[in-house]
Write a protein that binds this DNA or RNA. Sequence first.
RNA 1: GGCCCGUUCGUCUAUCGGUUAGGACACCUGGUUUUCAACCAGGUAAGAGGGGUUCGACUCCCCUACGGGCUGCCA
Length: 467
Amino acid sequence: MSSPVVTRFAPSPTGFLHIGGGRTALFNWLYARGRGGKFLLRIEDTDRERSTPEATAAILKGLTWLGLDWDGEVVSQFDRKDRHAEVAHEMLARGTAYKCFSTPEEIAAFRAEAEAKGASYAVFQSPWRDADPATYPDAPFAIRMKAPRTGETEIRDEVQGIVTIKNETLDDMIVLRSDGTPTYMLAVVVDDHDMGVTHVIRGDDHLNNAARQQMVYTAMGWTVPVWAHIPLIHGPDGKKLSKRHGATGVEEYQAMGYPAAGMRNYLTRLGWAHGDAEIFTSAEAMQMFDLKGIGRAPARLDFKKLENTCGHHIAMTEDAALLQELEGFLLAAGKPALTALQRDRLARGLYCVKDRAKTFPELLEKAQFAMTSRPVAIDEAAAKNLDTVSRGILKSLTPRLQNASWTKEGLETILNDAAAENGIGFGKLAAPLRAALAGRTATPSVFDMMLVIGRDETIARLEDAGA
RNA sequence: GGCCCGUUCGUCUAUCGGUUAGGACACCUGGUUUUCAACCAGGUAAGAGGGGUUCGACUCCCCUACGGGCUGCCA
C-alpha cells in the first residue's frame, strides 16, 4: 500500500545555499534515504531576473559538501515552462481557470483605492472571472485560477497539524502570466506532481501557499502530497537569520572548518528530536528521522553546540577520512595546502589531537608541533621553561634518546629515569621538553609528540633549543 | 491592518492530564592529569502573563503579550 517516498529540495538560484535551505534539504534527504525513497533536486529558476547559473553551481556545491546526494538529474523549472503552460490551458479547458484581462495597472489601482478607503485588506476579484467569452477583448491576458470563494481549505500538515484557511482570504491567483510564463504557484505544483513527489517538506513560509497550491491539485484531479512545513532557523537573538548574524551560507561553514558530518548532526537536531539522541551518524539519523519529531517553533542557531557536536564527529572520524576532509577545508578556506612532510606527520599524529579539537582550524592549531619545521619558534611563556638548568637536563637526554626504543614505553622509561636522577618531578622535565619540541606551553603529551615527529627530529629540536 | 503559525532551563529539546519537569550545549565547583584540551563526578537554571475546563494541568480551551510567516503577473 505504501508507495515509495519521493522528496525534493527546490531552491531558487538567487544566491549561495542558505543554512536554512541546507537544513530543509537535509530533512528531505534523511526522510527519503531512511525509507528507501528518492531525494530529487529541482532548481526553481523561473524568475529570469534573479536566477543565475553561478547561484545554481553554488547550491550544488553546498549540497555536495554537506554530503546530500540527490537522485537523477537536476531539474530546471524554467525548462519545463511549456508543460506549465499546457497545464494552465488544461485548467482553462476544465473551467477551473479563466482568462483575466485586467492589467497590472488596474490591479494596482484597485489596491490603492481599497487602501484609501481604509480597507484592512483587499482580495482582488477579477471582473473577468465569470465574463462571457464573447466580451473578451483582443488583448494580452493572464490565466487565473478560479478559486472557491466560500468555505475553507484544510491543509493536513505533518508538522503543523490541521490548518484551515478561509477561502475568502485567498484571491484567484495567476497561474500563467500575460507573457505566457508560469508563476511559481503553478510551476511548483506541476513539477511536484510530474516528478512524483509524495512528501513536500519545506519551510513554513510556504504554509499559506499550500492552501492555494492544494487548490491546483484539486483542480487537476491530482493526488495531494503529504505536507510538512518546518519552522525556519533563527539567529542567536531569535530574529530571522540574516547577514548581520554572521554566516548564513553553508560554504561559509565549510570555510570556518566545521566538518560536514558534524553540521549534518547539528542541523538534524536543530528543531528535531528523538528522545535523548544527541550525537549520531547519518546512517543512524536516517533510521530515526521522522516528521513527527519536528518541532513547531523556530530554532535558534547556537554556535557553541555546533562546535561541541563537530568536536564529537572529528574525534569519531577515521584518520584517513579526516585528513582528506581537512585538506578540503584548507582549499575552501583559501589556506596553503599541506606539504608532503606535513601531510605525513599529520597522518601519524592525528590520533593524539583529533579528540581535542572542535573545528579544523583548532585541529591544525593543536597539531602545530607536527606542522612546524625547524628551527621551532619558541614563544615567551615557553622560553621561561628553558633555563640553563633545564637545558642541561635536556642535553643529558639526547644520548639516551639516540639509543632508546622509540615506543611510548621506551620513552617513558628514559624520561622518568631522567627526572628521578635529577630529583625533579616529571612535570618539571616535561615543561622544557615541550618548549623545545613545540615552542609552546600547551601541547599534546610529550611522548606523543616525540613518537609523531620521530627520533631524528626530536633530537634535532632538542639541540636547536641549546640542549 | 487581515489571515496563519509559534511560546518548557541562556540555547536545542523530552514530556503527549497525575514526574522531585528528564537529557544535551553553555556556565560554575570538584576530581584526574606532564601543560592545554579531553575525560569523570556534582551544581545553578524552565513551563510568557491572565482566565477557564478538570479531583488534578506544561499538556485541553479562550484572551493578552511577544516572535515569525503570508497577504505580488517574486520564489
